[in-house]
Design a protein around this nucleic acid. Structure first.
Lengths: 92, 92
DNA sequence: CGTGTAAGGAATTCTGACACG
DNA sequence: CGTGTAAGGAATTCTGACACG
């Protein structure tokens, strides 16, 4: 969408390419038009910054993946702490 | 925009008509496409509700106008109160 | 590897009008 | 008065490819 180009300052080509490299995952309308979310836009600006620093898209993708698994790990740790807490306190 | 139809559940025709009746004022792109803001969308849903209650667009517009001048009055009153406060307290 | 561009088709949006009521 | 619809044109978006490097 042109709106996204405006907001991010990126060309359509670059935005589509970052999607092709699996860095963003916009929804589609039933007729194939891309629908960008707010976080897509933030992500695009973050990606552009890194690319301009010379980071390759592969590496950026790996970074995002790592961050996700990190977030997952954090969730699991918190869940584990909660569980042990309830056990210690004798909560059902 | 189709997005706005989806979000509001209104037909293009209705949305354009409410603009024609000066209830909303979307921006335009350089090529004449409408650009709706968040508040436009909220306003549209509000308008639709009233229209379905049988209120005429003229009346709705007058209501909005009144609310605006009310808001202006409120601002002026607050400003006045602040001024007198500063005067009483000897502020510069 | 990352990005520009020309190409052709498909979907969107725009306006002004006619219709109904 | 408020809304639907068919009409034709203009602008947008999409994909796949060729180019440069």
């Amino acid at each position: 969408m042109g709106t996204v180009c405006e907001l991010t300052g990126l060309s359509e080509r670059r935005i589509r390419y970052y999607e092709e490299r699996k860095l963003i995952f916009p929804d589609r309308t039933s007729t194939g038009f891309r629908k960008y979310s707010f976080s897509d836009i933030e992500k695009l600006m973050d990606i552009a910054e890194k690319v301009e620093e010379g980071v390759q898209t592969d590496e950026i993708r790996r970074d995002y993946k790592k961050k996700e698994t990190d977030a997952d790990l954090k969730k699991k740790m918190i869940r584990g702490q909660l569980n042990s807490h309830f056990q210690r306190s004798g909560f059902k």
